[in-house]
Amino acid sequence: MNIFRLAGDMSHLLSVILLLLKIRTTKSCAGISLKTQELYVVVFLARYLNLFTRYYSFYNTVMKLVFIATSVCIVWYMRFHKVVKQTYNKDLDTFRHYVVIPPCFLLALLVHHEFTVMEVLWTFSLYLEAVAILPQLILLQRTRNIDNLTGNYIFLLGAYRALYLLNWIYRFFMEKAQARWISWISGLVQTALYADFFYYYIKSWKNNEKLKLPA
């Protein structure tokens, strides 16, 4: 474990806790993309299968359970909670997220470290996570005023993978870990998708004005 990875995990954990808090306290999921949340459930289920087959550490196991539980809980709130589901921007959240699942799976069948079920699903989860934020970013451009909690949620979510990139650089040089192109390239693509959001987020934070993405 290194500081970049710990910071990345904490940023990721904080993002999902912030989102859950927003939904629970405001009883609203306005501005949140259900499609992105559902893609994240698929990402976590596909990636954390080794939860049952390989024990790394208490921390590793607990965090995997937390990420699966929170992502499922958020989807439940947005789909079934009688008050919250009314606030879902159904008409704006129109990205057909099921379209990205087959290409990611096909790519995982073609490009992977090893052709086993666990490895292909793990690779699939990396490719899917790289594009999972797309519905949310598109919804943001359509949302009139983005509330602070939502902006902070997306910032932390983007920061987590950016910190993971630093973690991979650290491990490559310090632990002489071998190159893991699949993780690196997926992580780069994922972080790059946040580039313009980061720009507008930091600008709004500097000028102390409302976060606004150009349509």
């Binding site: 990875r5 995990d9 990721h12 080794n50 390989r54 790394y56 550490s57 590793n60 965090m63 995997k64 990420f67 470290h113 090893e114 793990w122 993971y164 973690n167 491990r171 632990e175 870990a177 071998q178 893991r180 993780s183």
Partner: peptide
């Protein structure tokens, strides 16, 4: 085939 160390990551 030794497990990639990356698997200890989230």
């Amino acid at each position: 085939y030794q497990e990639l160390p990356v698997k200890d990551e989230l």
